[in-house]
Amino acid sequence: MAAVVPSPFASLVDHEGLTRVSLAYVAHRLNLYLRFGEPAYYVQHDRWRRMAAFRPAAMFCRIRWEANDYGTVRWQLMVMQACTSLDAAQRIPGVRPGARLLLHADGEQQVRATLSCIDAIEALNIVLTDTSPAYWRTLGNRLAAHLPLPDYTAARHAAWLAGRALS
């Protein structure tokens, strides 16, 4: 578990080179949280807001749920990879300075389908942050094209780890 840094001491922590992700919770209105990822540290701003900081190349998943008086108005899931200042990164609201967007699911159906894929990977006892970035890109493209979603198997994961070890 990452250390929680109290807000008054946030300036003492080295922010250089880290990707900062804003998180929030307002009961029955907004829930912006991490589904997976291993932050270097957290900063608790107040009861509702906090910030997670990720080292370069770290993978994480942020979910955004919003509602109004009539029900849910937004479901969003993004799988991202933190970048260095030299990498090409996309500007994403609440992610500073930006990140490499691997998967973007918008709407209840796409988010639920992605969450079931995430649950299936966890059922294989695979750490989600070690999953192949190419799988998340493929999953996002299949979601956008309304095609059948690919399975992430133990064999695919072993091949990814072997390739990563060689490079």
Rank of each mutant, 00 (worst) to 15 (best):
M1C: 06
A2Q: 01
A3T: 11
V4L: 15
V5Y: 07
P6F: 07
A10S: 15
L12E: 12
D14K: 13
D14N: 15
H15L: 11
H15P: 03
G17F: 06
L18K: 15
R20M: 00
S22N: 13
A24E: 13
A24N: 00
V26K: 13
V26W: 06
A27S: 11
N31A: 13
L32M: 07
Y33M: 02
E38Q: 07
E38C: 12
E38W: 08
E38R: 15
P39I: 00
A40E: 10
D46Y: 05
R47H: 07
W48I: 03
W48R: 13
A52Q: 13
A53M: 10
F54Y: 12
R55K: 11
P56F: 01
P56R: 08
M59D: 03
F60T: 10
R62Q: 15
R64S: 07
E66N: 11
N68I: 13
T72N: 10
T72H: 05
V73F: 01
W75E: 14
Q76I: 01
L77Q: 02
M78H: 03
V79G: 07
Q81M: 15
Q81A: 06
C83L: 11
T84F: 02
V95Y: 06
V95F: 05
V95H: 05
V95L: 02
V95M: 03
P97V: 09
P97L: 04
G98F: 07
G98V: 12
A99T: 04
R100M: 05
L101N: 04
L102Q: 00
L102Y: 00
D106R: 14
E108M: 12
E108W: 02
E108D: 08
Q109P: 01
Q110G: 02
R112L: 11
R112P: 01
A113D: 10
A113I: 02
S116G: 04
S116F: 04
I118H: 03
D119G: 06
I121V: 14
E122N: 11
A123I: 09
I126M: 07
S132Q: 06
P133E: 14
Y135F: 15
L139F: 08
L139R: 10
G140D: 05
N141R: 12
A144M: 09
A145C: 01
A145S: 10
L147Q: 15
L149N: 01
P150Y: 04
D151R: 13
Y152T: 00
Y152H: 11
A155I: 14
A155Q: 06
R156K: 14
H157V: 13
H157W: 06
A159F: 04
W160C: 06
W160T: 03
L161Y: 05
L161Q: 15
A162I: 02
A165M: 09
L166V: 08
S167H: 08
